[in-house]
């Protein structure tokens, strides 16, 4: 079978709402062959509610996902879960273990779970995460949960991609405070203090509150929810916070901006991917010793037809709504 025939067969499988069709479609996207499928299916997207879930390793993201899936299912909603784990930079292999916490949903035909490896993609999300979300959306899943380990850039990316971004933190771990300092405050729509059965849980809650006081929020002010994901305690409150945020987006008209942001995110990823490959080729062929790095960079850019720009204005991501009081 050639690629076009295979693509057409896959589309039929997808349209018959076969989980295999969705699974194969995501693989297609992961191997860089998703363009045709997405072109066919794009008009059908835009119906799902997308929730991003990030936070330091081991905080309970997958256990929270499982509890949120249970909640959404009790409301009659179908759910897709995308969980992203890092690939090994050495072997390019990956151990994807988030499913361990989701076993109760494996045979529920209203739940589709896909583990993805980041495959060296810079931002911590996998390169094809946005495609997987679009495909799940077109497949007709009502709610899509995206889990990613909160390291560096991934929270910024997930905030662009998801309508509602949940940042999960846990008491008694220095990690959570580091995460707060690293600028994640500014992207959270909902804070979760998970493991509220831990004796330091209330202290972490106070710390988050006091950090929030240092920020000016325009519009939505993040809600803070305490949960014990393992027992399901606080999950109703978490779901309510998510719904409040969605209602806010709809009422304020910001939902349109959010959608555009997710769209822009994906376009940026696709364009950057092409540019990066081109850049790597140029770097290999054009960079030689003997000139200074600025001159070499100019030369590479000129071969792209780009005139190097001066200017040092900071690139401020559009989704950051909060600013530190007194700074802006």
């Amino acid at each position: 079978m050639n690629d076009t025939d295979a693509g057409a067969a896959l589309l039929r499988q997808f349209e018959a709402r076969s989980p295999r069709g969705l699974a194969r479609a995501i693989s297609y996207a992961e191997s860089g062959r998703g363009a045709q499928l997405i072109r066919h299916l794009f008009a059908r997207t835009g119906r799902s509610m997308t929730i991003g879930l990030t936070g330091p390793p081991g905080v309970g993201k997958s256990t929270l996902s499982s509890a949120l899936v249970r909640k959404a299912r009790s409301l009659g909603k179908t759910v897709g879960v995308v969980s992203v784990d890092p690939s090994s930079p050495f072997s390019h292999g990956a151990l994807l273990g988030d499913r361990i916490r989701l076993t109760e949903h494996f045979t529920d035909s209203g739940v589709f779970i896909r583990s993805m490896a980041s495959r060296g993609h810079l931002g911590g999300l996998a390169g094809a995460t946005a495609d997987a979300v679009l495909l799940m959306d077109a497949f007709g899943l009502d709610v899509i949960l995206i889990e990613t380990v909160g390291v560096g850039q991934s929270e910024i990316e997930i905030a662009e991609l998801a309508h509602t971004t949940i940042v999960a933190l846990q008491p008694g771990s220095g990690d959570s405070i580091q995460v707060l300092k690293a600028g994640i405050m500014e992207v959270a729509d909902v804070f979760v203090v998970n493991k509220k059965d831990h004796p330091m849980a209330n202290q972490l809650k106070r710390e988050i509150r006091s950090m929030m006081e240092m920020l000016d929020f325009s519009g939505w002010v993040p809600e803070l929810v305490m949960t014990q994901a393992t027992s399901g305690e606080g999950i109703d409150e978490l779901w309510a916070a998510i719904e409040n945020h969605v209602a806010y987006l709809q009422k304020s008209g910001e939902m349109a901006e959010k959608r555009l942001e997710a769209f822009t995110h994906q376009v940026r990823q696709l364009a950057l991917g092409h540019l990066q490959r081109k850049l790597e080729r140029e770097l290999r062929s054009k960079v030689a010793e003997g000139i200074d790095p600025y001159a070499a960079a100019d030369r590479v850019l000129q071969s792209f037809g780009v005139t190097p720009e001066g200017g040092d204005e900071p690139i401020r991501p559009p989704h950051v709504r909060a600013s530190v009081k007194g700074l802006m």
């Binding site: 292999g93 994807l96 273990g97 499913r99 361990i100 076993t103």
Partner: peptide, 8 residues
């Protein structure tokens, strides 16, 4: 170099 999904 493989992606391994562990089910528990």
């Amino acid at each position: 170099g493989m992606e391994v999904i562990y089910t528990g």
